[in-house]
Simulated assay, not measured.
Amino acid sequence: MMKISKLSIIIPAYNEGGTIHLILNKIKAVELIDNIQKEIIIVDDCSKDNTEQAVAGYKAENTELDIRYFKHQYNKGKGAALHTGIAQATGEYTIIQDADLEYDPAEYNDLLKPVCNGFADVVYGSRFMGSNPHRILFFWHTIGNRWLTFLSNMVSNLNLTDMETCYKLFNTKLLQNIKLEEQRFGFEPEVTIKMSRTPRIRIYEVGISYYGRTYEDGKKIGWKDGVRAIYCILKYGLFK
């Protein structure tokens, strides 16, 4: 059995002032298995709205929560925000949580179980397996995600079903020892391929829910990010 005292939760945020309190409420409500404590690391990627004020207000009203806030002086991208958060993480394990409401923190324990039971170093939450609820949205996004996962699996020799998922749980020291370069959405294939090459790594996957957003709701990823992901798969999978 693996004893974990603290989980670091990294939240990259960009213009999420109107909803970030909702995701923080969900994180607050979660009781982690084995009395694991939560460290919440919010990295504001130079938001143009009231994200900073919203976080400050929430932190002042919820002093019992361990919330740490960092802000980039200019917009760098999601990957860069994650780099900042990873460097600051002090928990034995780290999970990535988007600031929107597409993923449910109530499922943290599902990702933690393979680790706590002594089986895993890394756990991915898959939107394409299991019986949990999934919002029906974009056909071509689904095809694109599956295709990118297929390409990533080819070069990493993994059999993941959802490489592009937000929910990735890592052993923090392993993650901090990887040199990450991608500043934007290329983070997903880069970290997957580089983690797969870590000696004796144990990677697991569990099914999760997905409450997807439309572009009207604020979804930010687009086709250019898919092209970049292909480039990153080739770059880190074949040439590095």
Rank of each mutant, 00 (worst) to 15 (best):
I42D: 02
A99K: 04
L7Q: 01
Q53S: 13
N62T: 01
P12C: 00
N109L: 01
N157S: 07
K235W: 08
C46E: 14
K28R: 15
D121E: 11
E216R: 10
S209G: 09
G207F: 06
Y215W: 06
I230A: 08
E16Y: 08
I20C: 02
D100F: 05
I203V: 12
K26N: 12
Y103L: 08
I4D: 05
D225V: 03
Y93A: 00
G222Y: 09
K179Y: 08
K220Q: 14
L7S: 07
T165S: 14
K113N: 10
L82R: 12
K173E: 15
L175M: 13
M154C: 14
N132S: 07
H83E: 08
D100T: 10
S5K: 15
V43W: 02
S152T: 15
K113P: 00
L175Y: 04
H83D: 06
T214N: 05
G237D: 06
N62W: 02
I23K: 06
R146W: 09
I41T: 03
N153V: 11
A54N: 06
L32H: 06
K26W: 01
N153S: 11
T19Y: 11
N153G: 07
I20P: 04
S126Y: 02
Y58T: 09
Q97P: 05
A229W: 01
E92Y: 05
N177F: 02
Y167L: 10
E31D: 12
Y103F: 13
I33Y: 11
I33Q: 10
F128I: 03
I23N: 04
S152G: 15
K76E: 15
V206C: 04
N50W: 06
F119L: 13
R213N: 15
V123S: 04
D49R: 09
I208K: 00
V155R: 09
A89P: 00
F185R: 04
V43Q: 00
M163D: 01
Y108K: 03
V155P: 07
L148V: 11
E102Q: 11
K59G: 01
G125Y: 07
L160D: 04
N159S: 15
T90Y: 01
I36E: 05
A89L: 03
G222W: 03
R146E: 11
E188N: 02
P114C: 03
W147P: 00
E64K: 07
T84E: 13
I193M: 05
E164V: 13
D49A: 11
A120L: 03
V191F: 01
N171M: 04
P105C: 00
K28I: 00
S131K: 12
F119N: 13
Y124V: 08
F170S: 08
D121K: 09
A80Q: 13
G222E: 12
L101W: 09
R146C: 06
E31W: 00
T19G: 02
Y108C: 05
Y69K: 03
F138W: 14
